[in-house]
Design a protein around this nucleic acid. Structure first.
Length: 543
DNA sequence: AGCGACCGCAATCCGTCCAT
DNA sequence: ATGGACGGATTGCGGTCGCT
């Protein structure tokens, strides 16, 4: 148990590395193994694979299980590398739903007074994040995923509120949320919002979440009991935190005063280098269910590196952005004990998450499972932004590729046929052809027809392709006709006068008249053409 | 308004069939 | 024999309805 948690931590930790740092760390592991100080679980090739390829990182993640938690922590503790994480979590390949890049994220603590002061993270313009986003530390995503809808709503509301409040007053610990604000924020009915707020402030109170504590330099905070005999760190501090310290519902005023612990305030406010975060658009996350949130976090936290590597994905569902082992996914979704049947896990966690995201965000998640024999061992995920291509709604010409109903077809074909003195069936055939219908557009306008339906693009494309092929075929036939003519001329030159006399022009006209029947296309050399020509000529002559 | 019966829905779990 | 697919049962939670 501890093992998997620490490995998760380790995996998260590795994600922060730049390629250079990976190389450096790899070297470090190599040296370490050479000296065989400890039976480090990581081998050089483990490290190489792990660092070289995030796909493998996920795979290796499982093989790392053989290492003890101690080793992993020792590794991290001994890490000779200063983590300078300039590689932020870029949220998606398509940045179009992000307003601005997060830069210059700073962390500052003022500890000279009783109350710890917390200075919120600002963006490069010196602003606290806009309300449009709920900015969330990554490690918090897991914590909030186990809350129910209203609890999550409260936390998310706090996330935006606290940031602003702490900005104004760094020592503020109590935050007031009114039922009115809460209700407006999420569009709750007037009658329900009081109950909701009251209930949620109560239910949230008992809830606790756990996380691994980090020092600001990225090292694990040593806990008092964590020193093992060999003086090495055996564990980081696992911190249990109550979401709210005290929640006071002020009856009559319709608001609740929420006392938050510093850690929670920090989590909500401070996004320093060691706290990878990812941001979600507010209205997405408030609508998403627990699995949707976690899945979104997993998929969106794909780094540029993972994306590059997962391109190696050999499937047919398009490029994939990230790969996770089944085991890792189960842990992330908190499903190590639930949904023991893989199919159930897929159905009710992965698929449900995808459906959830599909429903509430413009993102479309693709998934392809990695099979080892019959067993699912992992999954690739790809994400598309449905809003992305934003097909410019070029005002389409309604008189182009319009699709008439069968009633309309009958009626207007009849009318046009009468006016033009044509066969109604022929007219109908033209009208229902998206390319040829152009011929009668003026007529239809005069007859007060108004297009109300159109052919799908794919259908039109099919017709266009057909037409192209037809013109191509016609061109070939044309060329063949010319070839025939020149063959005839050539034959006339070589033929004796007697033969020419025998063969009247009638024969030539027979051949040309039956041209379609003769498979001239197959005669692709002059010799064969000549041969065929003679053959058919003879046949014509005999008849 | 207060109460329980009832319903709908989602989450979870289980049994059976099927392919390998 | 095993894991996955699938249908279906069970559970639990809200919310609603009708009765008092």
């Amino acid at each position: 148990m501890t093992d998997t948690k620490s490995l998760e931590l380790f995996a998260d930790f590795l994600e922060k590395f730049s390629p250079e740092q990976m190389a450096e760390f790899e070297k470090y592991i190599k040296d370490r193994n050479k000296q065989s100080i400890d039976s480090a679980a990581l081998t050089a090739s483990d490290a190489e694979m792990t660092f070289g390829n995030s796909h493998n990182l996920a795979r290796q993640y499982d093989s790392l299980q053989s290492g003890s938690a101690e080793d992993v922590h020792a590794l991290i503790e001994d890490m000779p590398i200063a983590i300078d994480d300039t590689r932020e979590y870029d949220v998606l390949p398509t940045e179009n739903f992000l307003d601005e890049e997060q830069e210059g994220v700073q962390y500052q603590e003022i500890d000279n007074e009783d109350e710890k002061a917390i200075v919120p993270t600002k963006d490069k313009y010196g602003r606290v994040y806009s309300d449009k986003f709920v900015v969330m530390q990554k490690r918090m995503i897991h914590a909030i995923s186990r809350l129910d809808l209203n609890e999550r709503r409260l936390v998310l509301m706090l996330a935006t509120l606290v940031r602003g409040a702490v900005e104004a007053n760094p020592r503020q610990k109590v935050f007031r949320i009114s039922a009115a604000d809460f209700g407006d924020f999420y569009g709750l009915s007037r009658s329900k919002r009081y109950e909701f707020l009251k209930g949620v402030s109560k239910s949230l109170h008992g809830k606790v979440f756990y996380f691994w504590n980090f020092e600001t330099d990225g090292r694990l905070v040593p806990s008092a009991k964590s020193q093992s005999k060999n003086g090495r760190m055996s564990k980081g501090t696992e911190v249990a935190i109550s979401w709210v310290g005290k929640a006071e519902y002020r009856a009559g005023e319709g608001c609740v005063d929420i006392h938050l612990l510093d850690d929670v305030i920090e989590m909500l406010c401070i996004f320093d280098q060691m706290n990878p975060y990812t941001k979600y658009q507010k209205d997405w996350i408030t609508k998403l269910g627990g699995y949707g949130i976690v899945l979104l976090g997993l998929v969106l936290s794909a780094t540029k590196e993972t994306r590059r590597h997962v391109k190696e994905y050999q499937g047919d569902v398009g490029p994939m952005d990230v790969y996770y082992t089944l085991k890792y996914l189960r842990e992330k979704f908190d499903c190590t004990n639930r949904y023991e049947k893989t199919h159930d896990f897929k159905r009710y966690v992965i698929d449900a998450g995808i459906k959830d995201i599909q429903k509430h965000t413009p993102l479309r998640i693709r998934v392809d499972y990695d099979l080892s024999g019959r067993s699912v061992i992992g999954a690739w995920f790809g994400v598309d932004n449905a809003d992305e291509p934003k097909p410019k709604v070029a005002k389409k010409d309604e008189w182009k590729h319009f699709k008439m109903t069968s009633a309309q077809l009958d009626m207007f074909a009849d009318k046009i046929a009468q006016i033009e003195g044509l066969d109604a069936q022929d007219v109908k055939r033209v009208l229902e052809h998206p390319l040829e219908q152009q011929k009668y557009v003026e007529m239809l306008k005069r007859l007060n027809y108004k297009p109300s339906g159109w052919f799908a693009k794919s259908v039109v494309d099919k017709f266009v392709k057909e037409a192209q092929e037809q013109t191509k075929a016609e061109a070939i036939i044309q060329a063949e006709k010319q070839a025939l003519e020149s063959a005839w001329k050539a034959w006339k030159v070589t033929a004796s006068d007697e033969e020419i006399e025998m063969l009247s022009d009638k024969a030539y006209s027979y051949i040309t008249a039956n041209f379609e029947k003769i498979k001239w296309q197959h005669a692709n050399t002059p010799q064969i053409r000549l041969h065929m020509f003679e053959q058919y000529f003879r046949k014509a002559f005999e008849s």
